[in-house]
Design a protein around this nucleic acid. Structure first.
Length: 295
DNA sequence: CGTGTTTGACCCGCGC
DNA sequence: GCGCGGGTCAAACACG
């Protein structure tokens, strides 16, 4: 990530993103295609109703000027994220309560609607996640093998908690200082041994109250089990994580709407949410914070 | 004891 | 080719 440098203008930051020029109306339209955005989220385990009111906001996004994301306060925005783009400095201008979604072009373009597992099959951890090669005494990575980028998207939320609960269990495997940012970036990996989904969590240097969570890959399993009906507590769960002072925290509205509209019993499947979405691999389903599972 | 976090080192991609 | 910075590894450590 070095294309962010010292962006004098966060608004143009995305525009400068080569392959994902947000400035291009096309890309935006594409991103917020009523059919795609849901697919995108589903890809990452975020099921949502196809007719959610939020979608309306999506549709309006193509008129959003990234220099003034306040337009979408209270909603979330799906933004492109270059495979090497730093998003941390891109959140200036967000009003409280706004969330931003970043999508990764590399995979979304063709994969998001396909939903056939991930872009690639990471040879390194296809089975044992962190199992290291038997013959490699140290951290000798397989040379010649390029790092495979999976589809990614990021939520930008206002919160004082860095690690937002999303229904899955994550294991932190790294932390790095972010250039030009006083806040470190944390790396998490899904604890499911068969799941290669990763996520990065970082705070915006411009707006410390903004947390950027970037998901990469898609879950191949359900969320770690929590009691049926627990989903209805999502909002309260989220709220419980926040300090009263940060009330303007907004979990991606998509989640809220989804959970709200979901019946306690059908929370798992939402079969009609996305007909084109596989009902078995991706599913993913519930967005209930793990914290709620254990009470 | 199992699970998760911390942290320094290492690898790799990319820009210059 | 070199250096920088992001991303990952894995041993050590902490905690329940």
């Amino acid at each position: 990530m070095d294309n962010d440098k010292e962006n004098p203008d966060p608004g143009t930051e995305f525009n400068t993103d080569s392959s994902w020029a947000l400035g291009g109306a096309d890309s935006v339209n594409y991103l917020f295609d009523s059919h795609r955005d849901s697919t995108i989220l589903t890809e990452f385990g975020w099921n949502l109703q196809p007719d959610e009111p939020d979608r309306t906001h999506f549709a309006e996004l193509d008129s959003i000027n990234m220099d003034d994301t306040s337009d979408v306060a209270g909603n979330y925005v799906l933004l492109p994220e270059s495979s090497t783009t730093t998003t941390a400095t891109s959140t200036r201008g967000l009003e409280s309560g706004s969330g931003v979604l970043f999508g990764d072009p590399t995979g979304s373009t063709s994969n998001l609607s396909v939903s056939s597992s991930s872009t690639e099959d990471p040879p390194e951890k296809s089975t044992g996640s962190v199992e290291k090669p038997p013959q490699t005494p140290s951290k000798v990575r397989k040379k010649g093998q390029k790092r495979i980028r999976q589809p990614r998207f990021a939520f930008v939320t206002k919160s004082e908690v860095d690690h937002l609960e999303d229904g899955y269990r994550w294991r932190k495997y790294g932390q790095k200082a972010v250039k030009n940012s006083p806040f470190p970036r944390s790396y998490y990996r899904c604890t499911n041994s068969k799941c290669t989904v990763k996520k990065r969590v970082e705070r915006s240097s411009e707006d410390p109250t903004t947390v950027i969570t970037t998901y990469e890959g898609q879950h191949c399993h359900h969320t770690v089990g929590f009691p049926r009906g627990a989903v209805i507590s999502l909002e309260s769960a989220i709220a419980g994580q926040l300090t009263p002072a940060v009330s303007p925290f907004y979990y991606p509205s998509v989640i809220q709407s989804r959970q709200i509209s979901a019946q306690p019993g059908e929370s798992r499947g939402l079969p009609d949410t996305n007909p084109q979405v596989p009902t078995d691999e991706g599913l993913l389903g519930d967005m209930v914070p793990p914290g709620m599972r254990n009470g």
